[in-house]
Computed example of a mutant assay.
Amino acid sequence: MDTPIETNTRYSLTDGSPLPDPALYLTIIGSLVHLTITRPNIAHDVHIVSQFVTAPTTVHWSVVLRILQYLRGTQFQSLLLSSSSSLDLRAFSDVDWPSDPSDRKSTTGFCIILGDSLISRKRKKQDVISRSSMEAEYRVMASTTCEPVWLR
């Protein structure tokens, strides 16, 4: 799999039929949450599927299996940090306003790059509901600006 979950797909509690025994689902979600410490690239995707631990369905189970297939396919990939790159610090940010139709909160994301190397990244739901896309953009710009200050 090229991506842990399908892009631009929304999941809800009513997708699919309920799993007869959600114990395996809960166990794998717990393991994936622990794995996000060393594989932060799946953190947001694990967050999405962990929202359904109270009533997992067959659709949610297929998403978890896709995440596991992605992990199996990328287990030998790694980051290469070059010693010959410049020390230019760049930051990129974006927001998906409002990305979750159930709570209307926006999802923000940013990455900090030093030379050719990614040194920090973050993707999460905003804490509050933004009333406009501009408000959501200002919030992500503020959090992106704080990150290099903290890294310093």
Rank of each mutant, 00 (worst) to 15 (best):
M141T: 06
P56S: 09
F52P: 07
V64R: 15
L81N: 13
D127G: 01
P101G: 08
V46D: 08
T38W: 15
G73Q: 11
R131K: 07
A142D: 07
A43S: 13
K122N: 11
C111D: 08
K125P: 07
N41D: 14
V49G: 09
D94N: 03
S132L: 00
R90P: 04
E135Y: 00
T144D: 08
S117N: 07
D88S: 12
A91L: 08
L32T: 05
V95S: 01
S86R: 07
A136C: 06
T54I: 10
L87V: 07
A136M: 02
I112G: 06
L118H: 05
L35E: 12
S117F: 02
L81T: 05
S132H: 01
R90H: 13
P40L: 06
E137H: 11
I112N: 03
H44Q: 12
S106W: 04
Q51K: 03
R104S: 00
K124T: 01
V128S: 10
L81A: 06
S117V: 02
L89S: 05
I113P: 09
I129G: 00
H47R: 08
D94Y: 03
Q77W: 11
L79A: 06
A43Y: 13
T57I: 12
S82A: 08
D45W: 15
S83M: 12
V46W: 10
S102Y: 02
T145G: 07
D127Y: 01
W97S: 00
S62V: 03
V140L: 04
P98G: 03
I129N: 00
V64T: 06
I119P: 10
L32D: 09
S78H: 11
T108V: 03
M141P: 07
V64Y: 11
N41E: 08
T144R: 15
Q77F: 08
D100M: 00
R72Q: 05
E137Q: 15
D96H: 00
S82D: 14
M141G: 10
L71I: 12
V49Y: 09
Y138D: 12
R39C: 09
I37A: 11
A91H: 08
R39T: 10
D96V: 00
S78I: 09
F52M: 15
I112R: 01
S50E: 14
P98W: 03
T57K: 07
L65S: 15
A55F: 13
P98Y: 03
I48F: 03
I119S: 13
K105G: 00
S132Q: 01
S62I: 04
S84R: 07
Q51C: 05
T57V: 10
V64K: 05
G115H: 03
S82I: 02
V59H: 06
I113N: 15
S99Y: 05
V59F: 06
S86Y: 10
S132A: 01
R72S: 08
L87Y: 12
T144L: 13
L81Q: 05
P56C: 08
V63I: 14
V33M: 10
I42Q: 14
D116T: 07
H60C: 09
S83N: 14
V64L: 14
K125S: 04
